[in-house]
Structures are given as C-alpha cells and as structure tokens.
Design a protein around this nucleic acid. Structure first.
Lengths: 229, 229
DNA sequence: CGCTGTCTTGAAGCGTTTCAACACAAGTGG
DNA sequence: CCACTTGTGTTGAAACGCTTCAAGACAGCG
C-alpha cells in the first residue's frame, strides 16, 4: 500500500484518478491529460468541502479519508445521503445542473481530495464521449439506487429497512459485517432515531436473526429470515 | 394543436422528438437521422409498456397519453414513482445499466410512444456528444429530485409532504391547482394511504390553508402558512 | 342506468418518536 | 497516562401520528 501523503502531487493525482470507474478505461495519454488539470486539497476532520447554496465549480474525487454527504429537509432536519470512500466522487450533480449545491459535504476524518474544474471536465466530455457514457452509467445506478431507497421509505417499516440495510452491507458468502458508520448516522441514513436503531437491533438479536459483537460488528445468523420481515 | 393520431408516422415522430429536451437542440439534419431510427407503438388504457425484470432495449418517448411508473418494494408494496406526459421519456435507466427494468410502466389512458433502440441511441451519443451532456443534465435533475424526495420521506411527516407537494403543483403566481393524479395514486406517491390523504386535506381546509373544489381542484388560501408546517 | 372503483369518516390498534436518565467510548489536555 | 470532556449508545415510559378495517357516499365508465 501507498502512503498518499508522501507522494508527489502528480503521483497522487494519478493514484487517485485511476481509482475512479469513470476514468479508468482511458488510455495512458488521455489519463495524463486529465491528471494535469486536477488539483488536490486537504480537509481536517469536521471541515466542510461544500455547503448547500454554494456555487459549484468542481468535481471532487476522494483520494484519502472519508466524506459524508447530507441534506437538510425543508423543515431543517438532517438526513445522511451517502458516505464517500477513496475512489468515490461528488459534486457532479451541481456541475450539470444549476451549478448550486443542494447538499452538504463534510470530511468525517482527515481527508484528501483531488478536484477537476467544471470547464476542464466539460472539455473532456466533448473530446472523449466515452467518459460521458461512463458517467451516464454511474448516474443510472445512482438513480436506481435512490428510487429504490425512496420506495423503501415510502412502503417499509423501520425494522425492514434495517434488515435490508444489513443484508446489503454483507459481502457475498460472508456471515459477519462491520457497520460503515455510527448508529447515530445510520439512524439519519435510514430516516429514524438512534433509539429505534438500538431497540430494533436488540429485537433482531432476541429473535435470533443476528448477533451484535461490539459497537460496529454484527454476525448474521439467519439471512433468509431477516429478509422475510 | 395537432391531433397526433391523424399524422403520418414520420410527422408523428418528428412532432414527438422535437418535444424532448434531450434532442431539441439538434440541427434539422441530425434530428431527421434520429427520427428515422424511431418506431412508434400504441397502448390501451391499462396496458403495460414494460415490467420489472424484463430486458430493456429501448428509450420510450411519450407522444400522446399518460404513463405511470411504479415500483414494488421488497415486501411487495407498490409505490408510484412518476407520471409521464407527452414529451417525457422513460426506459433510460436500464439502457445505461444492467439492461433490466426495475420498475413498471403502465398506460393510464390510451397512449402512443415512440421508441429509440438502445444500439441506435448509443451510436448517436458517441457521434453527437452534446446529446450526452443533455442527458447528463436531465439525469442530474432527476437525481436531485429523487434525493430530495428521499430526504422528505426520511424526515417529514405526512402532512408536510402533502403541503410541499401542493406547493410544487402550484404554478407560479397562480392560486389554484389541479391534482395531476387520483388521491389514491397521490397516496401511493407520497407513501401514505388514501384515508390519510383525505383526512389531512380536510385538516388543512379546516385550518384555512386550502379550499377543496371538487375531487381534483384545490385553491391555496395561505401558501406561506402551508410551507411553515 | 348499473357496476366498479375511488373517496370519505369513524374507531381501534400499532409502530415510532420523544424525553429523560444513565452507561459507555473516544478524543483532549494537563 | 490518566482524568476530563464530549459525544455516542442504551433503556424505559408516555405520547403521538399513522394505518387498518369496516361501512357508506360518490364519481366515472361501459
């Protein structure tokens, strides 16, 4: 493994951009072209990358660290939308839209991102149409995912939403998982409260579907049963 | 206004494709190229255009009629996702993705669509990259919209979701609106039951925020009050 | 006109939130 | 390194919001 912090800026960008599904099909030369336009930037735990209402001017690719994306509803309540790990990107929505962010991006640990300016990106898209197809594919998945999530909120009760979430965290053929976020954040993500998360996980454990191991690890005892809730 | 049904197929396609934001910036010649690859198809009230699980092979553009898009949740409950009117399109998600539909599309009145095959579309996208940018922009808006909707479900109570929906139906500087769907469908769209819709609208009327006029018309008496719920 | 599906209203029941109090873990500074 | 502070996680009891079921009114379509 590499320690990014010790890399040259150029190596850092390369390291980071090759991680991204959108770009990783490019020829080496095109890749270099993209890289030279990128800048990098660091954020300390708790710092904001962008806020709702701000003008958007870049695509942000996480090269190191963790970022949480959240929204405020009309009545001021916060909902966690997504957690970004190295290789994930954000800021894309505002780029093709009105240009104003509607969500908040905050570093949850010390984080390094690499940024591609809007104008540079647009240029690449017209020059290498295959990038567009990649982004279209990425957007499609995200839209499916988001609509699926909406439908779950609209039709499933909390216990089911938790069960489905656990099932999605579980790697194929594995029986144990590590929660990707705190239970407080999980509550925000699933549209409920930390108290309810705590109680429902307790219920699932009593019913024999899962076994909680410490704060963040869960062993799935009966996946099929879990999905029948 | 035109009566599409009486048009020649070719005129019909043109009529229909020029309606679509994705294509309406094209030169006449390019437009013709797109049109010649399109086919049209008709559906009677209640007929399915596609179902979840089916292989996807086309983009569908509504030229006449109304289509409802809905999903089934894991536990089998139905949620209405969107209603398509002439000029709207669907089927796009599966085109860039796995190729399998995850939602259902049903004609709610007699409907005519024009279809562009997947392979033809991909060809156009690589040939005319500006179409991709248009679609990216459309997808961005949809994603914003969908994430906003998710956040509402996650954080707002039913009454607020209804109020926000009414506000969005209201045309600028207007004071009266016509619901775009039945209250039963509205309930499905907003993730609640027809009974609750009925009761909450009653409450809003008693509180003086709105006035119900017949089954589908509503006069907004106090928009600001409504949005402060 | 009659049938079918949508809409309304009431009463009972359920699921989830809220508030408060306490246990526990993690990050901070002497 | 420990003690301190701060934030996260748990548990109970009460309150709330919404759904469910049932029954009747109404509208739309053949």
């Amino acid at each position: 493994m590499h320690d990014y912090a010790q890399c040259h800026t150029h190596d850092n960008h390369k390291q980071c951009i090759t991680l991204v599904p959108i770009f990783n099909h490019l020829e080496n030369e095109q890749m270099n072209e993209v890289m030279t336009t990128a800048r990098s930037s660091s954020y300390k735990r708790g710092e904001m990358i962008y806020k709702a209402g701000e003008q958007s001017d870049s695509l942000y690719i996480v090269s190191k660290g963790k970022i949480k994306i959240y929204r405020l509803s009309e009545s001021g309540k916060e909902q966690l939308v997504r957690i970004l790990n190295p290789g994930d990107f954000t800021g894309e929505l505002a780029l093709f839209n009105e240009g104003v962010h509607e969500s908040y991006a905050e570093a949850i640990i010390d984080t390094q991102v690499c940024m591609i300016r809007r104008s540079d990106l647009q240029e690449f898209l017209l020059k290498y149409p295959s990038i567009s197809l990649k982004i279209l594919s990425e957007f499609s998945s995200r839209l499916e995912q988001s609509e699926k999530q909406t439908t779950r909120f609209a039709t499933e009760k909390v216990e089911t939403r938790i069960a489905l979430f656990l099932a999605e965290c579980l790697e194929r053929d594995s029986t144990e998982l590590t929660l990707p976020m705190s239970k407080k954040d999980l509550a925000s993500y699933l549209g409920t409260t930390p108290e309810t998360i705590s109680r429902k996980l307790g219920d699932l454990e009593v019913a024999g579907y899962i076994k909680q191991k410490g704060q963040r690890n869960i062993e799935i005892m009966d996946l099929d049963g879990l999905l029948l809730l």
